[in-house]
Structures are given as C-alpha cells and as structure tokens.
Design a protein around this nucleic acid. Structure first.
Lengths: 288, 288
DNA sequence: GATCGCAATATTGTCTGACAATACACATAA
DNA sequence: TTATGTGTATTGTCAGACAATATTGCGATC
C-alpha cells in the first residue's frame, strides 16, 4: 500500500439508504453485487422492452435530480460530512460507477461539479482527492447545505448568526446610503408582506426576501452572494421561530424600524436597528 | 426564431485569440472548418504516429488546462464579461463542440462546472441559459477572477476594499479572542517574513498569508472562504503597492500592531489596528 | 373562430466502449 | 546506493447511440 491514506472499504455495512432527493428515495440503488447477472447486453430482460442498455424505468422526474446531480449531492455530502477526510484519495471513477450502477460519464460530471466547488482535485494515475478544508467553498449554496447537516444544528446556527452580525449591519448602512427607489420598493414590500403574512412559512419567506433585498441594495456586488447564508439561517431558524404573538409583533416593529431608516437614508440609525433585530434573534435562539 | 434571445452568431470576426492558460495560447483552436479532412479514422496521418482520433500533439501540459477546464474558463469568462447576458440561451453543446473542435463530453463537463458555480442552468429541449446575476457565486475563486477582468480594475478594487472594511476588523477581533497558539504562530511568522522579505513579490505573499491566517484564526468557518477576496485584492493591488521605503516601514509597523494585539488578546485594539491598516491601504490606492 | 390536444422536433441526459496522457511504483542496471 | 527504464493504474478525451423532455406548431373539435 502506498503512503497516502487509501480509500475506505466502500462502506459495506452502510449501503447508502436514503439519497438526497427526498421524493425519489432509492433512485440510485447502491451496488447490490459485483456480478449481477450475465445477460447484460444481449436479449431484452424479460417483461421490459428497453432495448439494450439497462436503464432505470422512470429516471429524473424531479428537476434537480438527474443522475449526475444526485451523485454530486451524495458524494459531496459524504465529503463534507467527513467520510473522506481532506487528503484522502477517493474511490476511482470506475468504482463509483459500479457502486451506483451508473455510467462513468455521469460520475465524471458529478466529480467535475465537486471540483468546481473546490471540494476535489484530481490527476491522471493518482485519482481524485479531497482538498484541504480551507479551500472548500463553504459559501456555495450546496456546500453550505451539506455542511449544515454535519455538525450540531446549534453550532451551525451560531456560526451563521455570528456571520450575520458582521455583515448585515454594515450592508444595511450602505443600503441606506445607496439604495435606488426600486430597491427601496422591494424592501418596503417585503416588510409589508411580513406583517400581512397569515402563515409562519409565508412570513419567513417575506422575511428572507427582506434581508436579501437589503443586501442587493447595499450597492456592493460581493455582498449579494452572502444571501445564501441568510437563506440557510432562516431554514434552520424555522424550528426556533416564535409562535408568541407578542414576540411576532415586536419582531415586526424591529423590521419596520430598519425599513424606515433605510427609507430615510439614515445609515447609522439603520445599522443600529439591524443590531437590535439580530440581538433579538439571538435571544430567541438562546431561550430555547 | 423563438421569442427568447437566441445565441449570438458565434462571434465570427473574433476567433477567440488568447485563451485562459497563458502558456498554452492556441491550445483550443477555434473552428477552422466544418469538414477538416476525410481520412479520419483510417490510416495514420503522415508523419505523426497517432493512430485514430485526431488529437492535438501535446495536450494539457499545464495542470489547470485540461480541455474541459480551459473550456470552462473560456465560457465562464464570456458569461461574466457579459457576452451572454442573464436569461440568454447559450449555443447548444453540439455547437460548442464544433466551435472548439472538442468532444461533446468535454463541453458537458465544462458546462457542469459552470452549473456548479450557478452561472448556468439547463434543461432538455431548452438548452443552457445564463442564470440571473444575483445567483452567481461571485465569491468563488474562478468567478471572482473572471469578474475582476470585466469592469474597471479601479471599480473592482474599490468593491473588494469596501468588503475588507466590513470583514477584516471583526474577523481580527474574533481572532484576538479565540486564536490558538498554533494559529498565533502562523500569524507571527507571516508578519516576520513580511519584514524580512527581499522582493516585493515575496513581501506580498507573506502579506497575503498574514491576512489569511487571521481569517482562519477567527474561529468562524464561514469567514475562511472569504480569503479568496483578499488574495484577489492583493493580486490587483500589486500594481499599486508602494516602493517608497518610508511607506513600506509604516505599513510594516501597522501589521506588527495587529500581530501584537492579537497576541495579547485585545480584540478592540486589534480591530482598530486593522482599521488603520485598511485606511492606509485606501490612501495608497487613492493617491495613484 | 377559439380552444384543446397531439405529434414533430430540438436539446440535454445517459450509456457504452475505446484509446491517450500521466506519473507513481517497481525492477533492473551502473 | 543511485540512476534508469518499464509496468501499470487512473483520469482525460473522444466517438456514437439512444432516452427523456418540453417547446412549438399543427390539426381536430367544440
């Protein structure tokens, strides 16, 4: 055996139960055996009338779950989760292909997607290895989603909230200085819809739109991609959100204060208003 | 013709001169003709002893310039540059394949990489289209690099610097609170090497390491990926960096103040020290 | 004439099989 | 021991085929 840590033994006792796509559980069926049966290409297998290549009956019904996308999710999740620590050489393409009974092209496309997110790198004769964690693009929507499942929800939420404390007050101050009227309209509308929402989900959606609109209005293109963090935060915050009417109304007032200060172009006041809102959110989290 | 804006006419007068890989200029030669020659698979073509598929002689010598990687860079750059505005349907895979004389697989792998960066999305029968700019992952290393070439250097630098003002003071304050001894050692070493550097390039490298180490020491995983911004900033700042000895020494002192305050675990002082450094950098930029 | 349904069609998605390029690992030779 | 060459495993690239999909336009029906 070489020096480099080799791949794990394909996780034989853990046959990859539920895949990513929630509605299509066993779409990617794991390797059931090394040698399935002999009649591979010849005669059509029994009842099915699919001519040559063995093909699963109804593939990729859900938009985001083509074979390569599912593969990328599965492998990406495993990497972020720590199944293959940084530096590890992954199973080779043929192995993945066999494990999931998909073509090598699909595997390659999945791996290319993970390479684009800096989770992997590869070279001929070596294979694909996991990149050092510092290189991972944690702010990528998918990577963030995978990452959110790995540590404690609590820890993840704390990290995200801390990040929001850094970003949002300043972004909001910039928005107060540079917003256009159109951007202001988006912010105001989202704020209004928050107040008028009849369900918690509806409210959360409007809340998300509110904060994303502020990021866009900040006038700094680089702040916009951080919206994925806010979306993720709200996804994971949902379980914590209060059902108390008092708290809801208080939160609404805090949002309206932000809206007002952006509208009146008062950067400092807007910044402080956001700080208050974030402190309030922190309190909600802590009290659970 | 359909309603949706169709692809541009393949840019016939602009035959894609210099590709991304600086050392391998005409690696991807654009479509020279639709029908190259007839003897494709049969006899080996003249002197060359390559058996069947026509293949460029020395391909992919530079690590990052495999065919699919070059393609991704080229297409990605065009998208970010604005050749294909958001909503535009791209030329289809067969077209790219023909244009660059590469296989469809290579095109697909390139497109999959761009999809992973949220620059593209696609569906059968429709094609691949450019995603709205808000979805682009501008904080991705590659996207950022492409983005850096498109607007004015000046504007780009200003945006990045503004972002640094938001992030780095807080990150440094956290580092002062939470750094481990190992992380402190990295920071101190980078700071020392900055002072001892004999070339501007060497100094810039150490400078970059210094700031990245601080981000890592902040104890917030989500701050680490923002390192690409700092790297990019220094890349583009290089032209501005001072050669005046006085300024150099002043900058060095500012860095050492940061190092010291992190070492002594004084968050507020560290934050202020970073603010001073950034103000100094802003001054350098403005004065040119 | 308007609306609905259906087929034609264009494009991505997937599979298969083959060969090239690469660089580590080992055996061999100096 | 060191240097050199060969073996070999893995990704990279190519080619060709068919499936899945959803728009588009046409035709049928109300």
């Amino acid at each position: 055996m070489g020096l480099i840590c080799a791949q794990r033994p394909a996780l034989p006792p853990e046959p990859l139960a539920a895949l990513d796509s929630p509605f299509n559980p066993d779409f990617l069926e794991p390797m059931r055996d090394a040698k399935p049966n002999k009649e591979k290409s010849p005669a059509k297998a029994a009842s099915g009338d699919r001519p040559a290549g063995v093909r699963r009956p109804d593939a990729a019904r859900i938009p985001g779950s083509s074979v390569h996308a599912s593969l990328a999710s599965e492998i990406g999740l495993r990497i972020v989760r720590g199944d293959y620590p940084p530096g590890t050489i992954l199973p080779n393409e043929a192995k993945w292909s066999e494990t999931f009974s998909v073509s090598r092209s699909a595997v390659r496309e999945a791996i290319k997607m993970l390479m684009a997110k800096s989770l992997l790198a590869s070279r001929p004769k070596i294979g694909s290895w996991v990149e050092p964690k510092e290189r991972w693009n944690l702010l990528d929507r998918d990577v963030l989603a995978w990452y959110a499942t790995s540590p404690d929800r609590e820890v993840f939420l704390k990290t995200v909230q801390e990040f929001r404390h850094i970003i949002e007050p300043e972004a909001t101050a910039f928005a107060a200085m540079r917003r256009t009227d159109e951007q202001m309209a988006e912010i105001s509308q989202a704020c209004r819809e928050m107040g008028e929402a009849t369900s918690l989900q509806e409210r959360t959606r409007a809340d998300t739109r509110f904060h994303l609109a502020i990021l866009r209005a900040s006038g700094n293109d680089l702040l916009v991609p951080l919206g994925v963090l806010i979306e993720s935060a709200f996804d994971h915050l949902f379980a914590y959100t209060t059902r108390e009417l008092d708290d809801l109304q208080h939160a609404q007032k805090l949002h309206e204060a932000i809206e007002k200060n952006i509208r009146l172009q008062r950067p400092d006041a807007a910044r402080n208003a956001v700080r208050k809102l974030l402190a309030n959110t922190d309190g909600v989290i802590r009290s659970r």
